[in-house]
């Protein structure tokens, strides 16, 4: 057992966990932040994407202990009073059906918009589709997800 401590959505949290606890289990089971989903056991689906020190990562492929001291943001932490522009865009564009993939889509969406902005590149439709390769949706056919991210990219 070891004590891991990190900042999650702006709050410092510390917990004693079994050493090999996955970050996603730490988030869901210890912190009870169940917006981060688990859709596969092969690190493919992207339902579990969170930001670790500002970068998108699959929390199912990371140990909680490896995030010790890190700054983690989950879907619960992106709204700042009002919905985040990415959340609003998914709402406006009907970017979800069952919603299972949505937290991961939004976390990946925010990451790609921020990254393209920082690099001064344009995030066009083709780039969004390519960037979404790590997130799988079985409902929407992606079309409205792409539209949502396009809208948010203009507003962020």
């Amino acid at each position: 057992m070891s004590t891991v401590s990190m900042t999650v959505n702006g709050k410092v949290v510390a917990s004693v966990v079994e050493d090999r606890t996955l970050l996603v289990d730490f988030i869901r089971e210890h912190l009870r932040l169940t917006g981060t989903h688990v859709g596969c056991d092969t690190s493919q689906c992207g339902a579990c994407v969170v930001h670790v020190n500002g970068k998108a990562m699959k929390s199912c492929t990371m140990l909680a202990a490896a995030a010790d001291g890190a700054d983690v943001t989950t879907i619960e932490g992106v709204a700042n009073g009002d919905l985040h522009p990415m959340q609003k865009a998914f709402n406006d564009n009907h970017g979800l059906q069952c919603g299972f993939c949505t937290p991961g889509m939004i976390m990946s969406g925010i990451d790609m918009v921020n990254r393209y902005k920082a690099e001064g590149k344009t995030l066009d439709e083709a780039a969004i589709r390519a960037e979404l390769e790590g997130n799988i949706c079985r409902c929407t056919g992606y079309h409205n997800i792409v539209k949502s991210i396009q809208q948010a990219a203009g507003e962020m």
Binding site: A56, M57, T61, E131, E133, G134
Partner: peptide, 9 residues
Amino acid sequence: VGARQIQNR
């Protein structure tokens, strides 16, 4: 290699 989230780790 995988996708961005995999490349980050």
